[in-house]
Nucleic acid binder design. Structure first.
Lengths: 207, 207
DNA sequence: CAAAAAATAGGGTAAATACCCTATTTCGCG
DNA sequence: CGCGAAATAGGGTATTTACCCTATTTTTTG
């Protein structure tokens, strides 16, 4: 039996995904959550065989959840299910090595097939993804940790808050900040914000 | 019997809304569409008693659909169901006189109640809407100069740059910053940025 | 395994920020 | 006219950033 965790901030979607998954042979939904933080807690505790993850969620973005999942529950397969089609953001997820990615726009049949494929150890990606990635210039030399810190900065957290959240020293976060700024050619938080908005790194519809 | 048309570009949402509505007493879904153009065609032809409308759709935006609906099918009640929380857009919709507005983040129970309310001729709005509108109005309380300074801050300029640009003292700009922060209830540039994004003070569609 | 890269953490410093306060001038409006 | 709001400007301070540096421990990788 494959155990599945659903993470999406829209209740309607969570309920629908639950129905969809439990209609499949050999799958059971063990939990569903509406934010990134709860997702991480649930993943560490339940170690599900598969998570269905929205990119745009409060508290911890999809990418943070992916990275932490790979760290704390390395056998868990990850499928992204998203309405976002911003290339940069999606490419980051691919670079992190997610096992599947589907768009909410697409027919749910593709998602259904994808869930089965990923559960069997294969990868499965929406057909539209190739086109999106093809039109992208990969200006993404940030390390995973740096991306995580950047995401926190963009969420409005101070260096101290981030250090506390990640359980590392303020000085370490400060170093990450410096490296991020250098790599992205920015010199202030507002520079970072604008770059993030323009490249779609930031989720504009986050509540 | 209330006839309902569903317009949303996500198939999963369309299906879920259809289920939700048909579980209600006295409602039937007459059609569902995934873009604004098809929505208008269907509305003119079917003259449904109620439409459930996403703001962000291909071909014709939510606001266009609302205006044309009121013109060609004036008895049709309109409920917006959206993931977008950008203030200015939402305010436009309110100003157009939609009958209800709910967020995809919220519990579906509110939507269910809202559909019943609107079908009975009342209006129904998500509780969170009040906060967003409040943010907009708070921004409206800024003086002309403060708005000008805010705009510069959001464009990524430092206090010194702004002072130089406006030919005033750094200290004056600093005072304006303090007043802006106080009026908007924010405490950092990133707070300001996020508020600006959420209320639509920043044009998110700028390429 | 050895080299390279990343993550960790600390010592510094100059600048910028987020507030507190008072005080002057300017200008529209009842 | 005069009141009050707005804009101007400065004093002061605690905190935060941005960035320089070295250095150790992991992790990754050839």
């Amino acid at each position: 039996m494959h155990t599945v965790l659903i993470a999406d901030d829209h209740m309607l979607i969570r309920d629908s995904l639950r129905q969809l998954i439990e209609s499949l042979e050999g799958f059971t939904v063990v939990d569903d959550v509406d934010n990134g933080f709860d997702a991480l807690v649930a993943i560490k505790k339940l170690q599900p065989s598969l998570i269905l993850l929205d990119v745009a969620m409060p508290d911890a973005s999809g990418i943070e959840v992916v990275i932490d999942t790979q760290r704390w529950s390395p056998d868990t397969k990850i499928i992204i299910y998203t309405g976002v089609t911003s290339g940069t953001r999606l490419k980051q997820l691919l670079d992190c090595g997610v096992d599947g990615l589907f768009f909410k726009h697409s027919d749910t049949r593709y998602l259904r097939d994808g869930i089965n494929a990923v559960a069997e150890g294969r990868t499965a990606f929406d057909d539209k993804l190739a086109d999106i990635i093809a039109g992208l210039e990969a200006a993404d030399n940030l390390t995973a940790r740096e991306k995580q810190v950047l995401s926190q900065i963009l969420s409005g957290h101070s260096t101290r808050d981030i250090a506390s959240y990640l359980n590392i020293s303020v000085k370490t976060v400060d170093n990450h900040r410096t490296h991020i700024m250098r790599k992205l050619g920015t010199h202030s938080v507002s520079d970072l914000m604008r770059l993030a908005i323009n490249t779609g790194l930031i989720d504009l519809d986050a509540p």
